[in-house]
């Protein structure tokens, strides 16, 4: 049995945990649909993280470690945002896992 999500009338393949099978299938609607499934409303703050992850992946072909993500967000938005608490408030299922999923990236190999 294969898994998929519906985005704008298109059926996109995912793995069993809901990560997109093909990075190229991603569009902003993907993040919205995935967030809806998790009962989570995406704010600009969420999008900051998603966009950062996509840019990072494009540049380095890997998802950043949480430590790297935290540091980068702090640099971008200010020191008070560069901590795990802020990211966990946005992404309670774990910033790397949940945000990477919304960003269409493969499941990160680290623990969160």
């Amino acid at each position: 049995m294969s898994n998929s999500i519906e985005v704008d009338g298109k059926t996109l393949a995912t793995d069993e945990e809901g990560y997109l099978e093909n990075l190229a299938d991603w569009e902003p609607g993907v993040a919205n649909v995935m967030a809806e499934i998790d009962d989570c409303e995406l704010t600009d703050n969420h999008w900051e993280v998603i966009n950062f992850l996509r840019e990072y992946y494009e540049e380095y072909q890997i998802a950043p470690a949480v430590r790297v993500l935290t540091k980068a967000i702090g640099k971008k938005l200010g020191k008070e945002y560069g901590n795990g608490k802020y990211l966990y408030e946005l992404y309670p299922y774990g910033p790397a896992k949940q945000a990477c999923k919304y960003a269409g990236l493969p499941k990160p190999t680290g623990c969160v």
Binding site: Y60, Q61, I62, A65
Partner: peptide
């Protein structure tokens, strides 16, 4: 995958 790009991220790690 062109993983050579990841060598440029090593500094951050």
């Amino acid at each position: 995958k062109n993983f050579s790009k990841a060598f440029r991220a090593l500094e951050m790690y």
